[in-house]
């Protein structure tokens, strides 16, 4: 299954891109996170939340969506 992964804020600087398509299978959001840590080690430097199909979910959640967002600490206002 194809998923789109989007990197927000400074995470886009760590990966060098704002989004990418992945075709690998991951069971959970954490599975995807560990894969991304391997590919982009700098991602380990900032704590981020993960969202699946526009809903922030825990890393143990089953990966069943097609849009995954990595959200660094919020700094609105």
């Amino acid at each position: 299954m194809e998923i789109k992964v989007r990197y927000f804020g400074q995470l886009a600087e760590f990966t060098g891109k704002s989004e990418e398509i992945m075709t690998q299978d991951f069971k959970t959001l954490e599975g995807l996170k560990l894969f991304l840590f391997d590919r982009y080690p700098k991602l380990k430097e900032v704590h981020f939340k993960m969202a699946q199909d526009n809903s922030i979910e825990s890393e143990s959640s089953e990966l069943k969506g097609t849009l995954i967002d990595l959200l660094p600490p919020f700094s609105g206002g």
């Binding site: 927000f8 804020g9 400074q10 939340k49 969202a51 922030i56 959200l71 660094p72 919020f74 700094s75 609105g76 206002g77």
Partner: peptide, 8 residues
């Protein structure tokens, strides 16, 4: 809003 809304 500052704590929960994903703005960067």
């Amino acid at each position: 809003i500052k704590a929960r809304v994903p703005v960067f």
